[in-house]
């Protein structure tokens, strides 16, 4: 397989988006593509909170939860 496909859901937003990434892509790579700063979010992969250095697998559901709410 030359790429993997993951589904991304931002908590609080109904829409899901699909992304194609390289076979060795990590969550950190995906966040970079989406323009998210890791300091401001928590990531769930298939329902589990994981570290951004985890490698993605084909079919993963990634949920992004923004945690910075103050000014």
């Amino acid at each position: 397989m030359t790429y993997i496909k993951v589904t991304v859901k931002q908590v609080g937003n109904k829409h899901k988006r699909e992304f194609r990434l390289g076979p060795h892509a990590t969550i950190a790579d995906l966040l970079k593509e989406l323009g998210h700063n890791r300091e401001t979010i928590v990531v769930r992969c298939n329902g589990k909170i994981v570290v951004e250095e985890e490698r993605l697998a084909d079919g993963d559901l990634i949920e992004i939860l923004p945690i910075v709410t103050g000014g």
Binding site: N37, E39, T40, L65, P66, I67, V68, T69, G70, G71
Partner: peptide, 23 residues
């Protein structure tokens, strides 16, 4: 976990700057 509708201004700029620095 909702964001206050009035958030903005210099506080937000400083917060974003610090988060980028930490990253």
């Amino acid at each position: 976990l909702a964001v206050c509708p009035y958030v903005g201004g210099i506080h937000t700029e400083i917060r974003d700057f610090l988060n980028q620095l930490e990253a």
